[in-house]
């Protein structure tokens, strides 16, 4: 795919997202500010309720910053509502136009997902800027950690797309894959460290989770950013995550090939 096309697809999605100004700011407030407030109360309740100063290797402040980071990272990784975009294209016949274009559909959708990250990044910048002022500088946050975290977020964004792509392609056979997506979302949140840090799981469970792709969606980028991983652990994690990207990419291609054979172009 040519560079000009990538740029135009990317910016088109950013412009599309920003064309609804009210929705842009409402979603920023609702999905970030509200979730941050919820995180604050959960952490407070957990630590006050247990009476322990450290839970799963985190003190109350570290735990709060973990939740803050995982909310922000989650927004970048999941890129808002594009999770349903592929299945909607198939279900409503929007895929037709992409089949006519001389460009790979999967790549177009991924670039659109990246484009959707742009406005999410603006929202994060606006709402995250005041967090250090209100709660202090997060412990362990260093330039090196931030760099590792950014690379991990980029990998996680790709991994998230490659995980949801084959699931959404099930729409070629089933009328609705909403339940599959909910299952995926729940599994990702639980096993990926969005609901709670993975250090709360037992050692043996953590070993299994390190081999599965979910951890690399949220917990891994957050742990990288907050300086909880050594460079060696980070490098191994990146390799495992990218390995999953490769496996899922092959799976996605296979499902796509079978699915387009089934496609009936509904709605036209």
């Amino acid at each position: 795919m040519r560079g000009g096309l990538l740029r135009d697809l990317l910016t088109a999605e950013i412009r599309r997202r920003m064309s609804y100004r009210a929705d842009f700011w409402i979603s920023a407030v609702s999905s970030l500010a509200v979730r941050l407030a919820v995180a604050w109360f959960i952490v407070k309740a957990v630590f006050e309720g247990s009476g322990r100063p450290v839970v799963g290797g985190y003190d109350a402040t570290q735990m709060f910053f973990y939740y803050v980071a995982v909310i922000l990272v989650g927004k970048l990784v999941q890129s808002t509502d594009l999770e349903q975009s592929v299945s909607q294209d198939i279900y409503e016949g929007g895929l037709t136009r992409y089949l006519l274009y001389p460009v790979p559909y999967g790549l177009v959708k991924y670039v659109q997902q990246l484009g959707a990250m742009g406005p999410a990044a603006v929202q994060i910048a606006v709402f995250a800027a005041w967090i250090p002022l209100a709660f202090g500088w997060p412990q362990g946050l260093t330039p090196g950690g931030v760099a590792m975290g950014i690379a991990a977020i980029a990998m996680a964004n790709l991994l998230h797309f490659l995980m949801t792509f084959p699931i959404q392609l099930v729409s070629f056979w089933a009328d609705n894959v909403w339940s599959l997506m909910v299952m995926h979302r729940f599994a990702s949140a639980l096993l990926g460290g969005m609901l709670a840090p993975l250090t709360l799981f037992s050692d043996s469970t953590r070993l299994v989770l390190e081999a599965l792709p979910f951890r690399y969606l949220f917990a891994f980028p957050v742990e990288s950013m907050l300086g909880r991983l050594s460079p060696a652990q980070w490098a191994v994690g990146m390799l495992v995550g990218l390995g999953w990207c490769g496996v899922l990419s092959i799976l996605g291609r296979a499902v796509w090939r079978r699915g387009t054979f089934q496609y009936t172009g509904v709605g036209i």
Partner: peptide, 23 residues
Amino acid sequence: QKAQLWWDLPAADSLLLLKEIYG
């Protein structure tokens, strides 16, 4: 019966995108 243009963008933006898609 089926729109192919990007609904939220001006047509000029969609056309520029198509220019790139078709080279």
